[in-house]
Design a protein around this nucleic acid. Sequence first.
DNA 1: CCTACCGATCGGTAGG
DNA 2: CCTACCGATCGGTAGG
Lengths: 212, 212
Amino acid sequence: MPKQTTDGRVLRGEQTRQAILRRAADIASVEGLEGLSIGRLATALDVSKSGVFAHFGSKEELQLATIRVAAEVFAAHVATPGLEHPPGALRLWRLCDAWLDYAQAPVFPGGCFFCNASAEFDARPGRVRDALADSLRLWQQLLERTAADAQQLGELRDDVDVPQLTFELDAFARAANAVCLLGDDATAFARARRAIRARISAELTDPQLLPV
Amino acid sequence: MPKQTTDGRVLRGEQTRQAILRRAADIASVEGLEGLSIGRLATALDVSKSGVFAHFGSKEELQLATIRVAAEVFAAHVATPGLEHPPGALRLWRLCDAWLDYAQAPVFPGGCFFCNASAEFDARPGRVRDALADSLRLWQQLLERTAADAQQLGELRDDVDVPQLTFELDAFARAANAVCLLGDDATAFARARRAIRARISAELTDPQLLPV
DNA sequence: CCTACCGATCGGTAGG
DNA sequence: CCTACCGATCGGTAGG
């Protein structure tokens, strides 16, 4: 824990670090977490290579720190807005809808950061893969918890298989990101929204619970 | 068009080339098409770097040739077995099921080659991205044509939105590949199979058309 | 945070 | 197909 300085050097260092990582996440969403090189990142930020390197100590630490910042961006754009709604089926829909907004914007220039990095590292054991697997688990748990709450409130049928339902909702969202990016098909997000609404609606105890 | 030689040099050259590319596709499914380096590929095949390089002339040509071979492998494992069944709803199911078998095997050690390469290049303009976009289009057209045939035969309801249906089936398959690889969750393929069966079944004019 | 540097590896070439 | 080599860039280090 560094002592408080009067000239704000610690604070400035932290701001620089955050600026580096936000840019790193943008680059990685397009070029991949491995394609993200320290030299190119330094050039993009107009600082020296060692000026970037000194903040992290190794490329793997840079990759791990980039994942943490991307997770904060994801939380701010998807999880937090979703959780502003009260528990229930509508919150489940809003959460999925926020994910689609995040990917469609796109918040990261290469589309969903985690879709990209996960495909890159899912067959390469190591700390980067482990961190991405943790992120996936958190997202799945958020979706499942949200659906389970809606079920407990009586808004989703008792016989709904919650992990199966959330697997399917997540699948529609992922596919929209992938098809829109590679297929140059902007209708993919509309298809995903329609599919998610229909899938949730089919399990509602009261068909009026989702707004038009 | 090279003249026929008596010592089989042309034939042997072609076999070597195919062996290089099959290995290249395996490596790329794990390390990515950019992470696939000519030097590492040569070491893995126990030949010199220029021995590999001479077959392709540039890394981009190697990447494009690797995509073509991966497409042949995909066709042999998914499209061809699927098309052995007569047109109809059962063929649509068999095609999706063959895709899941291909990803689950896995035929490529890093899971579906195209899921991996597409995520890597979908935000990077160029010939590699174009080739992958063509592959996606072919797969979508195969799925849509198969579903449209089933509809024309009266096995799927007249009011089915075919591109919407096939978007959803494809989404389940992609998600199974991704979740199984990163989440270490073998149930993902079972979930995808259940989702695909249910989605097709919901649109059948005769509920008996899919076997148990 | 900088300059200057390290060995390793990259894609690609020359010449045979 | 090989050896030998090119300039560029990689991750990382030394010293300030």
